[in-house]
C-alpha cells in the first residue's frame, strides 16, 4: 500500500499547481505553434541559473530575467528581421543551454545539481516553493484571463485582429512574459529539458475532447493533474526519476486518447 508522506504531498500539490497554469497557457502554445519557442526559453533558463549564482540572487529571479529577456529578443527579432523562426530558435536554444553549462563550469566553489535542473527535482519542493508556484501561477492565470480574448483573436488571424483594433505587440509581449514566468515555475518540477512537454502534451491530449478553446484549457488541466498523479505514484512505486515519470505518464495519456479518439476528433466533424 502506498503511503503519501509529507514529501509526496508537497510534490503532488506543486505538480498540480503547475498543471493548473500549464493547461491554459499550453493550449495557446499549441494553437500558436510555439512549442519550439517554449523549448528555447526553457533552455535559456540554465543561463538564468548561472546568472543567479554569479550575482548571488534568487535563482528563480535569474531564470525569470533571462527568459523574459530572451522572449523579448525573440519577438523583436522575428518582427524586424523576418528570420526563419526555427533557425533562430535552434541557434538560441542550444547556444543558451551550452552557454549556461559553460558558465556554471567556470564557477569555482559552486556545486550544482545539474541533473536536478535539467530533469527537475519535485521531491525537493518545500513550503516556500509552493508559495512561489501558487503565487506566480495566480499571476499567470489572472493575466492570461485578462488578455484571453485579444490573444485568441491574434492567434486565429493576427492582421484581422489588428484591423479590428487589437493592440498586437503588448498582448504578444504579455504572453511571452507569462511563458517566461511559467518556465521559471516549472523548472524545479520537471526541469529545463522537460518544461515544454508539460505545456504541450496535456493540451494536445485535451484537443480530442474539446469543442471550445476554454474547454480545451480546462481539459488540459485535468490531463496534467492525471499525469502528475500517475507520474508521482509510478516514481514512488518503482523508484523512478519523478520529472521524467510525469512526462511519460502524460505521453501515455496522449497516446491512449489519440488511439481512442483520433488526434483531432473535434475537427473531423463536417
Amino acid at each position: 500500500m502506498l503511503i503519501f508522506d509529507e514529501l509526496m504531498l508537497f510534490a503532488l500539490v506543486a505538480g498540480c499547481g503547475l498543471a493548473l497554469v500549464a493547461g491554459p497557457l499550453g493550449s495557446f502554445v499549441v494553437w500558436r505553434r510555439m512549442a519550439y519557442f517554449g523549448d528555447t526559453l526553457a533552455h535559456s533558463a540554465l543561463l538564468g541559473i548561472a546568472l543567479g549564482f554569479l550575482l548571488g540572487i534568487d535563482l528563480n529571479l535569474g531564470i525569470l530575467v533571462v527568459c523574459a529577456t530572451m522572449a523579448v529578443l525573440l519577438v523583436t527579432l522575428r518582427r524586424r528581421q523576418r528570420l526563419a523562426s526555427d533557425t533562430v530558435l535552434g541557434i538560441l536554444a542550444h547556444s543558451s543551454l551550452s552557454l549556461g553549462m559553460v558558465a556554471i563550469a567556470f564557477m569555482e566553489g559552486v556545486r550544482v545539481d545539474l541533473m536536478g535542473y535539467l530533469f527537475g527535482d519535485i521531491l525537493a519542493v518545500g513550503v516556500s516553493d509552493l508559495y512561489w508556484i501558487y503565487g506566480g501561477g495566480a499571476v499567470v492565470l489572472a493575466v492570461l484571463a485578462a488578455i484571453w480574448r485579444p490573444l485568441l483573436a491574434i492567434t486565429l488571424h493576427e492582421e484581422l485582429a489588428r484591423v479590428e483594433g487589437v493592440r498586437v505587440l503588448p498582448v504578444q509581449l504579455a504572453f511571452m512574459g507569462l511563458m517566461a514566468l511559467t518556465i521559471a515555475l516549472a523548472m524545479q518540477i520537471v526541469g529545463i529539458l522537460l518544461v515544454t512537454s508539460m505545456l504541450i502534451i496535456p493540451a494536445a491530449a485535451a484537443r480530442a475532447f474539446a469543442q471550445t478553446p476554454e474547454q480545451m484549457a480546462v481539459i488540459a488541466v485535468l490531463c496534467g493533474w492525471l499525469a502528475v498523479l500517475a507520474g508521482l505514484l509510478a516514481s514512488f512505486q518503482w523508484d523512478l526519476p519523478t520529472g521524467p515519470a510525469i512526462v511519460v505518464a502524460a505521453t501515455l495519456l496522449f497516446a491512449v486518447v489519440t488511439l481512442l479518439r483520433g488526434p483531432v476528433a473535434g475537427a473531423a466533424v463536417r
Binding site: 494553437w31 488571424h157 484591423v163 471550445t212 478553446p213
Partner: peptide
C-alpha cells in the same frame, strides 16, 4: 474597418465554433 483577408488558414488545433469566431 471590416476586413476580409485573402488568406485564412483554419488551424485544426484550435476548437472554435463559427458563432464564437
Amino acid at each position: 474597418i471590416g476586413y476580409v483577408p485573402q488568406h485564412f488558414a483554419v488551424d485544426t488545433n484550435l476548437p472554435i465554433s463559427v458563432r464564437r469566431f
